[in-house]
Nucleic acid binder design. Structure first.
Length: 407
DNA sequence: TTTCAGTCAATATA
DNA sequence: TATATTGACTGAAA
């Protein structure tokens, strides 16, 4: 899953001319803002940790990937957007020059008058480095400070208590995500040579595909317990190089998750997800503090193999990263190492033009095609699964998503 | 009520 | 200009 987004990101880097930036792709396809897309890319979470809602963007992505005209549509969207913008610009310029002052790309000229909104807007709080340091120190001592402590901190730092509270929430959450990444990374590294475990596989796949010029295709191992050995490699590669990739893998996982997970996402213990997570300590970089209520409990089953060992390790990792004053976000690097598989499960039969676009978008390599045939049946199966998921999701959500997806 | 996941959106950075 | 960062917010779960 994350690999899908990462693929896009990578593709974006590799093919800047692809013109599929985070903003366009996020807003048009995923229903997310640019910042959210970036965040997803930089600090992805294991699939099993994603809530149903958190999985939605990936479902949308897969839908998009399955659309034979996806790139064209996106490009059309972009053109239309540009046109509309130019139009607005023209009209507002001829109207008056007032719009000049408003920032580009934002339509302040329509709808409610922007002025009052501007006035109502609270200025964004920007914490000074010293303040952040102080908060981090406080976090080291107490990741879950009492209201009193928060109060004191706020007073000392001359901040609003809500700011301090928010900071702790955000910091915990982001540290946690950071640790997911590190754990995954550690897991795949430690197992890389030894077995055909998913993490090992993903690691291998990552390395093997890293060689691709432009698509150092990430390869998050398929979440499901795929057969190991050559086939597993093949899977990774095929996924990586052809259309099957991360999204599909993710969605297969998703399907499992959704299958019978309806009322309350009860999918986590699904084997494939557990498999995916094997060797990965579960979440919760808690130092000494109470286990995070729902997550901890929900993941109890998943706190498997390494909960005692790596779990602790992760805990200390958390502390060290904070203690050392390191930014908790080395994630860019770490997450780059998390491999992913480029992919699109878009129909193999799509036109060459399109597949070129997709190739550039997702970083397919030429070599991929040779693997395609061998994987096509697997992919078809996956695609069918996916459609199933999507169908159920749509039904369950009974929202307008489908319409959005349809452009 | 607290914590969390997910997200927005302003701002910073590359 | 595209992407990354991060304070704040929402809604759900416990």
């Amino acid at each position: 899953w994350l690999t899908s987004l990462k693929s896009i990101r990578r593709a974006r880097k590799c093919a800047p001319n692809s013109a599929l930036g985070q903003r366009l792709f996020g807003e048009t396809i995923l229903g997310l803002t640019q910042g959210s897309v970036s965040d997803l890319l930089a600090r992805p979470k294991p699939w099993h940790k994603l809530s149903l809602k958190g999985r939605e963007p990936f479902v949308r992505m897969q839908l998009w990937l399955n659309d034979p005209n996806n790139v064209e549509k996106l490009m059309d969207m972009k053109r239309m957007e540009k046109k509309a913008y130019m139009k607005r610009r023209h009209s507002s310029v001829s109207d008056s020059q007032s719009c000049e002052s408003s920032s580009a790309g934002i339509d302040y000229s329509q709808g409610a008058s922007p002025q009052p909104q501007h006035q109502l807007k609270k200025p964004r709080v920007v914490l000074a480095p010293e303040e952040k340091e102080a908060l981090k120190r406080a976090y080291q001592q107490k990741p879950y400070p009492s209201p009193k402590t928060i109060e004191e901190l706020a007073t000392q730092l001359n901040l609003k208590t809500s700011t301090v509270i928010n900071w702790f929430h955000n910091y915990r959450s982001r540290i946690r995500r950071e640790l997911f990444i590190e754990e995954i990374q550690a897991g795949s590294q430690s197992q890389a040579g030894s077995s055909d475990s998913p993490s090992a596989r993903s690691s291998r796949a990552a390395h093997s595909s890293e060689g691709d010029s432009c698509d150092g295709v990430d390869a998050e191992g398929p979440p499901e317990g795929k057969p190991s050995g050559p086939e597993a490699d093949e899977f990774s590669n095929a996924a990586a190089k052809s259309q099957g990739g991360p999204a599909e893998a993710a969605f297969e996982a998703g399907e499992e998750a959704l299958r019978g997970a309806r009322p309350s996402e009860r999918a986590e213990p699904e084997s494939l997800e557990d498999t995916d997570d094997e060797g990965r300590p579960r979440a919760a970089p808690r130092q000494s503090s109470p286990p995070a209520p729902q997550q901890r409990q929900g993941d109890a089953l998943e706190t498997l193999p390494n909960s005692a060992t790596e779990g602790d390790a992760s805990t200390s990792a958390a502390s060290t990263s904070v203690l050392t004053g390191e930014s908790s976000y080395k994630s860019k690097e770490s997450s780059e190492k998390i491999s992913s598989v480029p992919s699109t499960s878009s129909t193999p039969g799509a036109g060459s033009q399109k597949s070129n676009s997709l190739q550039s978008l997702f970083g397919f390599s030429e070599a991929a095609s040779s693997r395609n045939t061998r994987d096509s049946s697997l992919r078809k199966k996956k695609a069918a699964n996916l459609n199933n998921i999507i169908h159920r999701l749509e039904k369950a959500a009974s929202r307008e998503e489908a319409v959005e997806w349809e452009f």
